[in-house]
């Protein structure tokens, strides 16, 4: 079922302020359109007035400072994959970008769109959670920053107001000595919506886990940072028992559902198995 095309409006904003003005008047942003246009083509797009933010310069660059990397919300996956600093310091993000859709989708799709589309299966979300990302939101009223782990409130519910734009995603640069792990489990090797996507980082002191971050997608109404499982692991030394305990903890912490793409049991079992696989790499 298609939308009635003449009912919809679209303008292309050249500058950030133009976009913010329009948002304040009730227009909705469109970036790469790889989520929005699918809804539109299926006749399921709930809004009629769209402002394209693809050409806003402030949103499409990647900036480096001593303490953080800031990725504009409209930066594409292709751009992320090719960026030398991201490849060096945030390889999990580049991996996630590399298996988002296909080349054509990566040329259009943006990190900001992935976050605001707020699919629980979004591939960048677990990565941003384990990298402790912060989001910068902007409106005519000003800007504010919120930790990404507080951003999702419920299924497709977020801490963003209608007049706000996601401006950029900040990643703190303190990633050295961390071991990291990422895996996407989807129905096929490309063009796949994740059944489970899993990311984790850890730092060891001696044989003990000094610092650990675990996140998973497609296993709860929101991208899930697995705090309870992390606390089971923190300060402990890797052992078969610990791995088993942690696997049980994460199986209890996730709340997956059965849908047309996979089953609850499968998602739960795979998340636990991936955690084990990660922990075994630390041993």
């Amino acid at each position: 079922m298609r939308s009635f095309v003449p009912d919809y409006e679209l303008v292309v904003a050249a500058r950030l302020n133009d976009a913010l003005d329009m948002l304040a008047e009730g227009w909705r942003p469109i970036a790469g359109g790889t989520d929005l246009m699918v809804l539109f083509n299926a006749g399921k797009l709930p809004y009629r007035k769209l402002v394209s933010i693809r050409r806003v310069k402030e949103l499409s660059s990647i900036e480096e400072s001593e303490t953080e990397i800031s990725i504009g919300a409209a930066v594409t996956y292709t751009h992320i994959r090719q960026h030398p600093v991201l490849r060096q310091e945030f390889p999990l993000l580049c991996s996630a970008a590399s298996w988002t859709g296909s080349i054509a989708n990566q040329n259009r799709g943006t990190l900001g769109g992935n976050i605001i589309n707020a699919s629980p299966a979004a591939d960048s979300s677990p990565v941003l959670l384990v990298y402790d990302a912060e989001l910068e939101l902007i409106s005519l009223r000003g800007t504010r920053r919120i930790p990404y782990c507080d951003f999702h409130l419920g299924y497709k519910k977020m801490q963003i107001r209608d007049d706000e734009l996601l401006r950029s995603i900040h990643l703190p640069r303190k990633t050295e000595n961390r071991r990291s792990y990422i895996r996407k489990v989807g129905p096929r090797q490309a063009q796949a919506i994740s059944k489970v996507c899993f990311a984790a980082t850890a730092r060891l002191r001696g044989s003990a886990i000094d610092e650990v971050r675990i996140a998973a997608g497609s296993v709860a109404p929101v991208p899930l940072r697995c705090h309870a499982t992390e606390s089971v692991l923190r300060g402990q030394s890797i052992s078969p028992d610990l791995i088993e305990t942690a696997a049980n903890a994460i199986a209890a912490e996730v709340q997956p559902i059965t849908d047309i793409r996979s089953t609850r049991d499968y998602r739960r079992a795979v998340t636990a198995n991936l955690l084990k696989q990660f922990l075994q790499t630390l041993a």
């Binding site: 296909s102 129905p187 096929r188 090797q189 490309a190 063009q191 796949a192 919506i193 047309i260 793409r261």
Partner: peptide, 14 residues
């Protein structure tokens, strides 16, 4: 699942 996203045929990677 009458969409290509949800009915899974092999891609060049599979």
């Amino acid at each position: 699942n009458n969409q290509m996203t949800n009915y899974i045929m092999p891609t060049a990677m599979d």
